[in-house]
Every structure is written in structure tokens, then in C-alpha cells.
Amino acid sequence: MYATSYHRPSSISEAAALLAATDEAKYVSGGMTLIPTMKQRLAAPAALVDLRHVADMKGIHIDGSRVRIGAATPHAEVAASSALRSACPAVTVLAGLIGDPHVRHMGTIGGSIANNDPAADYPALALALGATIVTDRREIAADDFFTGLFETALEPGELVTAITFDLPEKAGYAKFRNPASRYAMTGVFVARRGGSVRVAVTGAGADGVFRQADMEAALAGNWSADALSGIAVPSSGLLSDIHGDSDYRANLVKVMAKRAVLAAG
């Protein structure tokens, strides 16, 4: 690891000021991607601004149908939230499938969203639930947020502070893990609200998380796994690598979507 410096703010404004004060500074929250990346010398921030002690970025709040999850909330806290489990169990299921118990104790929803790893779980949730990404500067719709592999609409230095979304009537998540790395080779999050259905796919897209419009239309007319049987998922635009070619992933998208609908009930 290259040398770095370390700063520990206690507020969002202090964090932003510290980040702006140093060239090549980076926010670190749980650090479950950033620290291993620094160990491999694939990242070398001159300064780290630690978000784990910013109280305003933590916690889960449910107000009627609106959910707000602070960006520095660890996966384990989301997975273990009894309030979320009764309001929308798919969210707790997804959080409990990320990494391993030790990673879930550190890694955060904000870090997952901001990093936009093409195999990360939370981007699928955010996109399928039509979530809003709250930053220290503005609010960004999930539809506009995820722009490509590890790319987002965030400006340099912009900080994700919270994720908000309306509770769906039904939601489900299913993921096929790479047998070695355990990352999602394909994960599908389905959500229904009113007559509207959203289906978001992670792990499979060559440009990262995406919505599957044919499945959304089919499920809006008939909310059942059978409604997906006749859909031909195109393999164009899907990842093809040593773990599986794009045809294999196209099939996984369909299988995982069916399982997600079954899980949603």
C-alpha cells in the first residue's frame, strides 16, 4: 500500500471540507472495496476521509411508506433490521447476501452504491425500487445515477449521504453467486408498486446494472413467474468471460427473475 493520510470528521460538512482540502483525497466508509484495492496498489489516495463517525449518515428510518437508510449504515445492520424485515423483507435478504459476515459488519450501502461495481447487489435494489440517491449537494434518481462500470452521476468530491425509497407492495431478490468469488454472476431485483413493475439486473450487464423492460411489461400484466416463461432475454450487452458467456448469463437473468418473483410472493 502506498502512503496516505487519515482524517476523521464527525459531520457531513466537515467531511466535505476535509476532502476538498487535499488533492487526490477519497472518502472511506467501511472500506471493504477501497482498502483491499489500496493493498493491491490499484488505488493510491493521498488522504482518506473516514465516514464511519458521521452520525447523520447512519441509521434506518421508516416514516409511513418512506424509507431512508443512511449511507454509512453497514450491511449487517440493514440485514438485521426487524422494522425493514416486516416492511420489505427483500431489502434485508439482499443485505444478508453481500460478502460474508465480517464484510457485512463494515461495508455500507452508500459505499456499494457510489462504487457501482457491476456485480454489486445494492445497485439492483436502488434501480428496481426507483430509489433516490441523496448527496451533500442534491438528490439524484437511481435511473440517472448508475451510468456505467464503476461510473455514476456523482461529481468529483460529491458524497452520497443517504438512500431513500417508497416501500413497494411486493419485492424479491434472487442471486446466482460465482462459485469462487461469491459475487453476483446475476442478481435480479423485482418490485411492484401500483400497476407498475420494475426489474433490475446486476452482475450480468456489460455496462453494469440495467432494467429489463420486457420482463417489466410481462409482470405488470401478470405478476407470476410463469409470465416470464415466454420471454427471450437477448444476450447482447451481457458480460461474457471465463465464468460464463453471454448466452449463459441471459438464461441466468430469466431464472433469477423467476426466483425473485417467487420470493416476492
Binding site: 472511506v28 472500506g31 471493504m32 493491491q40 460474508d100 465480517h102 464484510v103 459488519h105 463494515m106
Partner: peptide, 27 residues
């Protein structure tokens, strides 16, 4: 390991299991 996978470094920090190879001492 040097890839955060093996778990030989697990300790408890503030009551929770963590991988001490993926956390800086200053954190």
C-alpha cells in the same frame, strides 16, 4: 491471504467480527 478472502485475521471490533487485514489501524 492478501485478498481479504481467508478470514484468518478475524478479530472483534466493538463487538463485531471484522477482517483486521482490511481495516487500517487508524480506522
Amino acid at each position: 491471504c492478501d485478498t481479504s478472502q481467508c478470514g484468518a485475521c478475524v478479530v472483534h471490533m466493538d463487538g463485531h467480527s471484522v477482517k483486521s487485514c482490511s481495516i487500517l489501524a487508524v480506522q
